[in-house]
Amino acid sequence: MKNEKRSFWETVKLFFKGMVIDTSYEVIEAAANMEKDNFMIVIFSDFLGIPNPLSYYTIELIPYFGNELPGWELRMSDRKSVLAKAMGEVGEP
């Protein structure tokens, strides 16, 4: 399948432009999860053993992501490589 060669983001962008016909909602949903995962790594970095110097500020966001914690933890154990990528993108100060 052509899709596999595209990054999630390319797929999503093409989807927005209405150019992908064979992309299912599941693919988009996976992309959505990935974006959220990146964000949640910053908030729950302590769970992964990464110290966050601004945890005093990021804990304010915990209530809004806590309910997604179980799914996130599952996905994270699946995709350790996501971690390196996300830290590169969001990172710490």
Partner: peptide, 15 residues
């Protein structure tokens, strides 16, 4: 962080 959040909401919206 803001950008990631917006992206995440966008993608979720389209899903």
């Amino acid at each position: 962080l803001i950008k990631t959040r917006i992206n995440s909401m966008k993608v979720e919206y389209y899903a």
